[in-house]
Design a binder for these strands. Structure first.
Lengths: 114, 114
DNA sequence: CTTCATGCGTAGCAACGCTACTTGTCAGAC
DNA sequence: GTCTGACAAGTAGCGTTGCTACGCATGAAG
């Protein structure tokens, strides 16, 4: 899929991936690819700057480690990040509903129950 | 809602609004606001350039008319635009599913049935 | 010894929507 | 008579964001 459309939702995806456990950048890329059935194949030039943004924002924290002589920077969600993720989820639901009113076939999307 | 997230989906929204009949720019803004329960309140600086993009792309065609001494530019979907809208709908569904795999609570989103 | 997977990173670009502004008519308030 | 506000169109310039295309380094495999 054209990843251009991700605009503004990438941060949420990253937080969601890290929700299930700390990962380093390279592993995040693979996790995104795996969990999306290969639909999301994001280049490093997208991920690394995004992670630094998230760190600057306080949503994630990073720690360096060396595995097999290779330097890894492992990112983990902070409490602030967890809160941010909740907000992103709410925002996503609203976005999805709003846009869905125009692009989904008629009938209320049951993804937003009650 | 933050319209920033619209990035890449605005064209689809515009095509979807025009699907139900030709409208002029100002009316499109009101239609978006109405059909989204006020969630989508887009400024003219967003709509007008977008419509010109769509026209340049051949997805819509415009005709001028004067109503009550006020100049109106009415946009209507072209056949090409109708095809584009179908594509946008497919893209939206894919996007929604992909991102939903990360941001929606577990369980298959019934918005994508079968 | 060279290639490939792993792993991090930056510089510069392009796309897109937003803010802020301008121009103009008409209706209604003052 | 004037002025405000809804209607109606438009542009210039900005900021954010993701992408392309690089560079650097290690370890394993051929």
């Amino acid at each position: 899929m054209k990843a251009q459309e991700l605009h503004g939702h990438l941060d949420a995806l990253l937080l969601a991936v890290l929700e299930q456990g700390a990962l380093h950048g390279y592993a995040i890329i693979e996790a995104l690819r795996a969990r999306s059935d290969g639909n999301l194949d994001l280049p490093t030039g997208t991920i690394y700057p995004a992670l630094r943004r998230l760190e600057r924002a306080g949503h994630v924290a990073s720690t360096w480690s060396t595995v097999n002589g290779r330097e890894r920077r492992t990112y983990q969600l902070t409490d602030d990040g967890r809160r941010a993720l909740a907000g992103e989820r709410a925002g996503w639901r609203e976005f999805r509903t709003t846009v869905g009113q125009f692009l989904d076939p008629a009938g209320p999307p049951p993804g937003t129950p009650a």
